[in-house]
Design a protein around this nucleic acid. Structure first.
Length: 585
RNA sequence: GCCGACUUAGCGUAAUAGGUAGCGCAACUGACUUGUAAUCAGUAGGUUGGGGGUUCGAUUCCCUCAGUCGGCACCA
């Protein structure tokens, strides 16, 4: 999908279209007041105060119609500059504009405005020369949006739209949006029998169906296998813990609001755990450690529960319970670099093997002015951030820095990906933490016999199994690689009366080799069964008829292709087993 | 949580200016015996998301609760 904000020409076009939208809204709703109307990756929006009037999507066609009228009228878009005091006078009845003007720095700042016919807006520009150039637009949705993005403020109404140079580009874009909806993991999850939710169980609590759990198990085995090779030790800890545990870690202070409320049992207070770091801290602290033992790498597919805002829930991408592919690496200061590098390499290796190419790295740092969120120790923070930056530069990894995105206990490297529908999110993460080991009083004995505090790397490669599945379903459009597919081979006899015996023989052989194989022996036409095989995204459809029986061969068609391949049965079996083992895409 | 929309059979949907609902797929039964994306016929399946109100009568109008979706805010 094209990033409009990063395309200079489209960016100007969309920005101008935002003004066009505002002008049309002003015509239809004279009382409307306007906040800002920026260009975003997906097009543009404008935040509008309409008082008591509430727009719905049904109002958009009328606004579009008015926009087209203005376009037809063909006014030039003219830039002019005024002084700050002139601007304050000109917009004196508009509190939003006054707010914008007053926030500009110096007294004599020149403020630029753009006018088109009867409409003028504050704007740095640039804009297209004439509204006639804004022909190919579409308004997409309306929603509420907090003023200045602050939930303590009132809500404005936001109208989203998009604009292109040609009608064909617009059509293509709208078609892409439709296509994206089709590969939304919530739709695929339902169609392919991967997960379900139930009102009675509760919202945000997904349940994995047999097909989904096969994918889950394969992913779990895959990543744990990699971790074992790297010297990780896996543990199993309970999905709840005492409130004291989280007071010790600091999570209670920082995230109490986002945890399920505490429960009291026999005078003790517990919470469903939002995070399993404290459990792993306790495991480390369970025994004495020598510098010779470090790094110690403790991993767990760990279930956590977070009280996510209801509006944030989204299938298995974000639920109120999920399983992290978590691990905590307890290291000496000297080992930070090599362990961090090893984690980054593991991320790159996994992404490469799973053919994930569309991602970017973010270095999440603290906002030093935020004295509430972050653990108060400037030296520790500077040390941690410098260390991380140095490691990343040494590795030569491309990343962008994000101020204010760090965890309360330390800076982190996040891998950001974009889902089919919705906002970018974090898939993998690696976090540097000098804080929790101190809070839990962890130590190891150095070579001089002195107690030292280890450093902890928190890391999750698949993020959570849940979110990873959501992402990967969307990436693959549900056509998973063979090793992950719930059903790998679908055997379809042309005629049950004559071909079932041979089909059964193949079924048994594959089954014996732990291939997930299905024999479709229903009394239906071949075309019918082929269609269903494709819709269920089964990678291999194997057709068995007279030709195959006579020659001891099979014919197969790979899902998504039109080509039929015939080969000896033994060769096919070898091929399938090898492909599964190699985890080929 | 906030703003808005939506909720009809397992799934996808239609309809009613207020008179208790159709269709397709899937399921089941039978016929057909089939060579690469839907064979034909029949059967069954709904207190139209829950509760309340208005009304002679509510699936339709109103209130409320729940859930879903689009955004916003949040995301250790």
């Amino acid at each position: 999908m094209i990033n409009i904000k990063e395309d200079a020409k489209l960016s100007v076009l969309n920005h101008s279209c935002a003004h066009l939208l505002a002008q049309a809204v002003k015509h239809l709703y004279p009382e409307a007041l306007f906040w800002v109307g920026p260009v975003i990756e997906e097009g543009f929006y404008y935040d509008i105060d309409l008082g008591d009037i509430t727009l719905t999507e049904e109002d958009l066609p009328a606004i579009e119609k008015e926009m087209k009228k203005i376009v037809k009228d063909g006014k030039n878009i003219v830039r002019h500059e005024i002084s700050k005091s002139e601007a304050l006078a000109q917009f004196k009845d508009d509190p939003y504009k006054i707010d914008l003007i007053e926030r500009m720095d110096e007294e004599d700042t020149i403020i630029s405005c753009y006018s088109q016919g009867d409409f003028t807006d504050l704007c740095r520009g640039p804009h297209v020369a004439n509204v006639k150039l804004l022909k190919n637009f579409k308004l997409l949705k309306v929603s509420g949006a907090y003023w200045k993005g602050d939930a303590n403020n009132h809500m404005l109404q936001r109208i989203y739209g998009v604009c292109f140079e040609t009608p064909e580009d617009l059509e293509a874009h709208l078609a892409e949006l439709e296509e994206a909806k089709m590969r939304d993991h919530r739709k695929l999850g339902k169609d392919l029998g991967i997960f379900m939710t139930s009102d009675l169980v509760g919202k945000g609590l997904p349940m994995y169906l047999p097909n989904g759990y096969i994918i889950w198990e394969e992913l779990e085995n895959y990543i744990k296998g990699k971790e074992k090779k790297l010297g990780y030790q896996h543990v199993l800890t309970p999905p709840l813990g005492s409130v004291e545990l989280y007071k010790t870690s600091g999570h209670w202070e920082h995230y109490q609001e986002n945890m399920f409320p505490k429960m009291e049992v026999e005078g003790e207070e517990f919470v469903l755990r939002p995070m399993n770091c404290p459990h792993h801290m306790m495991i480390y602290g369970n025994s004495i450690h020598s510098y010779r033992d470090l790094p110690i790498r403790i991993g767990e597919i760990a279930r956590d529960c977070r009280f996510e805002a209801s509006g944030a829930l989204k299938g298995i991408e974000r639920g109120r319970t999920f399983c992290q592919n978590d691990a905590h690496l307890f290291v000496t200061k000297e080992q930070i670099k090599s362990e961090f590098e090893s984690v980054v390499n593991l991320i790159l290796e996994v992404y490469h093997e799973l053919n994930i190419t569309n991602y970017r790295f973010e270095l999440s740092l603290r906002d030093p002015s935020d004295k509430v969120k972050y653990y108060p120790d400037d030296e520790m923070w500077n040390n941690a951030e410098d260390t991380l930056r140095k490691v990343l530069n040494d590795i030569g990894l491309e990343y962008v820095e994000k101020i204010g995105e760090a965890a309360f206990y330390g800076p982190k490297l996040d891998v950001q990906v974009k889902p089919a529908v919705g906002n970018e999110y974090t898939l993998s993460t690696c976090q540097l933490d000098f804080c929790l080991p101190m809070r839990f009083n962890l130590s190891y004995i150095d070579k001089d016999g002195n107690k030292q505090t280890p450093v902890v790397l928190h890391r999750a490669i698949l993020g959570s199994i849940d979110r990873f599945m959501a992402y990967y379903l969307e990436e693959t459009k549900g056509l998973l690689p063979l090793w992950l597919s719930p059903v790998q081979v679908n055997i379809i006899p042309v005629n049950n009366n004559y071909h079932l015996e041979y089909a059964n023989e193949i079924f048994a052989k594959l089954k014996d080799l732990n291939v997930r194989v299905n024999l479709d022996d229903r009394e239906e036409k071949l075309g019918y069964k082929m269609r269903e095989s494709v819709m269920k995204k089964i990678p291999y459809a194997v057709i068995i008829g007279n030709n195959e029986i006579e020659a001891k061969t099979i014919s197969y068609r790979k899902c998504g292709t039109e080509e039929t391949v015939t080969m000896p049965l033994d060769e096919f079996i070898e091929k399938i087993v090898a492909e599964i083992k190699e985890r080929k895409n």
